[in-house]
Design a protein around this nucleic acid. Structure first.
Lengths: 224, 224
DNA sequence: CGACTCCTTGACAGCGTTCAACAGTAGTGG
DNA sequence: CCACTACTGTTGAACGCTGTCAAGGAGTCG
């Protein structure tokens, strides 16, 4: 039995625009095909981006191909707000993605002019990124594979806010590189959680996930 | 053969005071004994600290005792600069540590008054913390145990700037919780590197480390 | 001297990786 | 319409890295 899942057609309109987006009306829209690079690590950070539709992964690569995904960015998220002049991650569209872009200088120019509220707002954005990275450290350093997958699902459940079926935009491989494990281990953990009736995998490539018991899933996410 | 290592007596005077420290003359000095808590996770962030002497670990704890050390803070480092009202980590003195403290409100009050340079400086501090955390993610998610230990040694070598003997203030257990592994694995990796003549372990508890070949150590730190 | 802390080392088990085979789906072109 | 290919995910089996448990050594301190 397969339940057909439409990818994102029923998603709600782009959530609350951030302060940053509101303050600057001059955003241009661009469309990135699946797998295309939005910006590269160590490239000049000339633009700031907001996701209108789609999903983005940001990652660092080691010379031998190992990859650590630092974050997934979903509809409404801002990315590319670097304090430095260059990006510290590579950003790629996971699925076909529509972005709004704005000149970074236009934002940071306001700082030079002494716009304190813009400065505070950018600091807040950096802080949110930092908090996420700090929690990610605990995940990578302290959790076993089942806990990692459970925590990942809870994070995405919270962020996607789709009550019925959560549709993952990313592949197992992306999840694995986010969690510091392998795609096989992710697949096994998901099968195991399905075995326990905590969730159901549905749709093409099992990208759809129905959470039956969030509280039991939360138990799996810490101190298994 | 044992070489006696004096712990920190020959350390250079506290390095370049940060902008933050210079701007605010009203710092009070406090001494924390080994193992004592400086501030706790989720406690109000009322003070900002600079390390005059000693070393500090900042970490998060899981309910079952698992610990992830986010960073080690050495002489001259600033810590406790939170954007939020509370600390997101617990901070403990690794050895007897002397700190200078300043009221956080005194710093952040300047932001409220529109002090753009103070705002920028705090944003820079947060950004540095973020960069460290991002590199830490790669370490935890992509590296094997030998690479982790090698990378850790290189980081401390760079920060301690003691050309001859690097004296670790922390225990093997602390290193393990920083690297997401166990103290036994850390010990084995160090022994292995000593076996390869890349370094020598010296002094009480083998806290002293002489790096014989930094370039070979650097090779071990990536793509082993 | 004895208790304690910290580190090292060995033996062993287990979790997770690696390698491989297979299944389901989408896309393409004859 | 169907064959063929490409892509993604699942599952099994074997291996190996690392965690766990245990013992012992070295140094410190009262």
């Amino acid at each position: 039995m397969l339940i057909r899942v439409n990818s994102n057609k029923t998603a709600k309109p782009v959530p609350k625009l951030s302060e940053l987006a509101r303050q600057n009306a001059v955003w241009s829209e661009f469309k990135y095909p699946r797998g295309s690079e939005i910006f590269g690590e160590a490239e000049p950070a000339d633009y700031v981006y907001q996701i209108r539709r789609g999903a983005v992964r940001t990652y660092k690569l080691l010379s031998d191909g190992r990859r650590q995904i630092g974050a997934f960015h979903l509809q409404g998220d801002i990315l590319g707000v670097e304090n430095d002049e260059v990006h510290r991650f590579t950003a790629e569209a996971i699925v076909e993605t529509t972005l709004w872009t704005a000149k970074r200088r236009r934002l940071f120019g306001r700082l030079a002019k002494g716009d304190i509220s813009a400065a505070n707002h950018i600091r807040d954005l950096v802080t949110i990124t930092l908090e996420h990275a700090e929690n990610h450290l605990v995940l990578l350093g302290c959790q076993n594979s089942l806990e990692k997958v459970a925590a990942f699902l809870l994070e995405l459940d919270r962020r996607l806010e789709q009550p019925d079926v959560m549709v993952l935009p990313m592949r197992r491989c992306d999840i694995a590189d986010y969690l510091g494990t392998t795609l096989e281990t992710v697949s096994r953990a998901l099968s195991s959680l399905q075995e326990e009736r905590i969730l159901s995998l549905v749709g093409t490539n099992h990208r759809g996930i129905i959470l039956h018991d969030r509280s039991r899933l939360a138990q799996r996410a810490t101190s298994a």
